[in-house]
Measured scan of single mutants.
Amino acid sequence: MAASAHGSVWGPLRLGIPGLCCRRPPLGLYARMRRLPGPEVSGRSVAAASGPGAWGTDHYCLELLRKRDYEGYLCSLLLPAESRSSVFALRAFNVELAQVKDSVSEKTIGLMRMQFWKKTVEDIYCDNPPHQPVAIELWKAVKRHNLTKRWLMKIVDEREKNLDDKAYRNIKELENYAENTQSSLLYLTLEILGIKDLHADHAASHIGKAQGIVTCLRATPYHGSRRKVFLPMDICMLHGVSQEDFLRRNQDKNVRDVIYDIASQAHLHLKHARSFHKTVPVKAFPAFLQTVSLEDFLKKIQRVDFDIFHPSLQQKNTLLPLYLYIQSWRKTY
C-alpha cells in the first residue's frame, strides 16, 4: 500500500487533545456564526451592495467568503475584532481572482478581468477605488493598515499566469505559485494584525505553500471532471502515471504514490512551519489557523491510503469550527 511504503514521513496525529474535556472553552465561534445575517447573495444585490440601503460592502465580502471560501471565513471569524473586516476584504479579493479561471470560457475574457483587478489595485493606492464592493472594502483595508501593494499585485499576476490550462511542470513550480498567492495572502494578513517579524514571515511562507499544494490536491477530482489535470508532471512521470490515469480515476498503487509524494511535500512544509513556532510572536498565530484544515485533509487522505478520489475527501468536517476554536484558544498553530 502507498501509505505503508512511505509511512515514515507522517508524524503522530495532533488533533487529539488529552485532558481537553476537563476545561470548557468559552463560547465564541458558534455564537458569532449565529449572529451573522444570512440572506442569499443575488446578482441584483451584488450590483447594489455598495449603494445606500443595501447590506453594505462589508456584508457582501463576508457573504462571498462564506459561500466560496468557507474555511477562510471560519478562520477570519476568530481574528481580533479590529482586524476582521480587513481580512474579510482581503480574502474576498482572493476569491474574486480565484473564480475568474473557472467562470470564463475564453482566456481573453479572463485576461480582461485580471486587467480590471490590476487597475483596481492601482486605483486603490491612488484613493480612487471603483464602485465595486470588494474594491471598496480592500481600499478601506489598505488605508487602515498601510498594506504593501507588492503582495496584492503578486496575487493578481500569479492568478493571471495561471489562466493557462497547463499542469505544473514540477513541484517547485506549484510551490512558486502557492508562494505568490497563498503566502502573499498571509503576509498581508500579518500586516493587518500589525506583525512585522521575520520568523512570522518564514512560517507564512511555508504554510502558504502547504495551502497551495493541498488546494491543488483537493481540486483534482473537480478538475478531472472537466478533463483537466494540474498535478506536477515530474512526480507523475517518476511513477509512470499519465494524465489519462487521473481522468479515468485510476486507483492503482502508482497513482496513489503520486498523491503521496505531493501530500508529503505539504506535510513537510507544515511540519517545518511549526518547528520554530517558539520564535514566532503569539500575536501572529491567528493568521495561521488554516493549519487546522490543512492537517485535517492530510490526515483524511492518509486514512484512505492516498486515494484522491475517495468520497470521504469531499465531505465537510462538521467539527472544523470546534477544532479551529480550540486551536485559537490554545494559542498555537
Rank of each mutant, 00 (worst) to 15 (best):
S45Q: 15
A47E: 03
A47K: 05
A49F: 15
G51C: 14
G51A: 13
G51F: 09
P52F: 12
G53P: 15
G53C: 07
G53S: 08
A54G: 09
W55N: 15
D58T: 12
H59A: 10
H59V: 08
Y60S: 05
C61L: 12
C61D: 04
C61Y: 06
E63L: 09
E63H: 13
E63D: 14
E63Y: 13
E63W: 11
L64N: 11
L64C: 07
R66E: 06
R66C: 06
R68S: 11
D69S: 02
D69V: 02
Y70G: 05
Y70S: 08
G72P: 03
L74H: 02
C75Y: 07
S76K: 00
L77H: 03
L78A: 11
L78K: 03
L79E: 02
L79A: 15
L79W: 14
E82F: 14
E82D: 11
S83H: 14
R84M: 10
R84S: 05
S85R: 10
S85C: 11
S85G: 10
S86R: 02
S86W: 03
V87I: 14
V87Q: 08
F88M: 14
F88E: 03
R91D: 00
R91N: 09
F93E: 01
N94A: 05
N94Q: 07
N94H: 05
V95Q: 05
E96F: 04
A98K: 04
V100G: 06
K101F: 14
K101L: 14
S105V: 14
S105L: 12
S105K: 15
E106L: 09
K107C: 11
I109T: 14
G110L: 07
G110S: 14
G110Q: 10
L111D: 10
M112D: 08
R113G: 07
M114Q: 06
M114R: 04
Q115L: 09
K119S: 10
T120E: 03
V121I: 15
V121E: 04
E122V: 07
E122K: 12
I124S: 03
C126M: 15
D127Q: 07
N128G: 09
N128K: 14
P130I: 09
P130Y: 04
H131G: 12
H131V: 13
Q132S: 14
V134E: 04
A135N: 00
E137W: 03
L138E: 02
K140Q: 07
A141G: 04
A141N: 01
A141M: 04
V142H: 07
K143F: 05
R144T: 10
R144V: 07
H145L: 03
H145R: 04
N146F: 07
K149A: 06
K149F: 06
K149C: 05
R150E: 05
W151Q: 07
L152Y: 01
M153L: 13
K154H: 08
V156A: 08
D157Y: 11
E158L: 04
E158N: 10
E158M: 10
R159L: 06
R159N: 04
K161A: 13
K161S: 14
N162A: 11
N162V: 09
L163G: 05
D164G: 12
D165R: 07
A167M: 14
A167L: 14
A167D: 08
R169F: 12
I171R: 01
K172M: 10
K172Q: 11
K172L: 12
K172D: 12
L174P: 01
L174N: 00
L174E: 01
E175A: 03
Y177G: 09
Y177Q: 07
E179C: 02
N180H: 11
T181S: 11
Q182F: 11
S184A: 12
Y187I: 04
Y187F: 10
Y187M: 08
T189C: 14
T189G: 04
I192D: 02
L193H: 03
L193M: 09
I195S: 05
K196T: 09
K196C: 07
D197T: 07
D197Q: 09
L198F: 06
H199N: 09
D201Q: 05
H202C: 05
H202I: 04
H202W: 05
A203S: 06
A203P: 02
A204L: 01
A204G: 06
H206K: 03
I207Q: 01
G208K: 00
G208M: 01
K209I: 06
A210E: 01
A210G: 05
V214P: 03
T215W: 04
C216M: 15
L217H: 01
R218I: 04
A219M: 05
A219W: 05
P221F: 07
H223P: 03
R227Y: 13
R227S: 08
R227N: 11
V229E: 04
V229Q: 06
V229H: 10
F230S: 10
L231S: 00
L231Q: 00
D234E: 12
D234H: 03
I235S: 07
I235T: 12
I235N: 05
M237S: 10
L238I: 14
H239V: 00
H239Q: 05
G240S: 12
V241Q: 03
Q243A: 05
D245P: 01
R249N: 13
N250R: 15
Q251H: 12
D252S: 14
D252W: 09
D252G: 14
K253N: 11
K253A: 13
K253E: 12
V255W: 10
D257Y: 07
D257G: 12
D257A: 10
D257F: 05
Y260H: 07
Y260Q: 06
Y260C: 06
D261N: 06
D261T: 06
I262P: 00
I262C: 12
S264W: 06
Q265P: 02
Q265K: 12
A266I: 03
H267G: 07
H269Y: 04
H269E: 02
H269C: 02
R274I: 02
S275L: 09
S275N: 14
K278A: 13
V280Y: 00
P281F: 00
P281H: 06
K283G: 13
F285G: 07
P286L: 09
P286H: 08
A287E: 01
A287P: 01
L289I: 12
L289S: 07
Q290W: 10
Q290G: 10
T291K: 05
V292C: 11
S293C: 12
L294F: 04
E295K: 05
D296K: 07
D296H: 08
K299Q: 10
K299E: 09
R303V: 08
R303T: 12
F306C: 05
D307N: 08
I308D: 02
I308V: 15
I308Y: 00
L313E: 01
K316L: 11
K316H: 10
N317C: 10
N317P: 12
T318C: 14
T318A: 15
T318G: 13
L319E: 03
L320P: 00
P321V: 05
Y325W: 15
W329T: 08
W329K: 11
W329C: 10
R330S: 11
K331V: 11
K331I: 10
T332H: 11
T332F: 10
Y333Q: 01
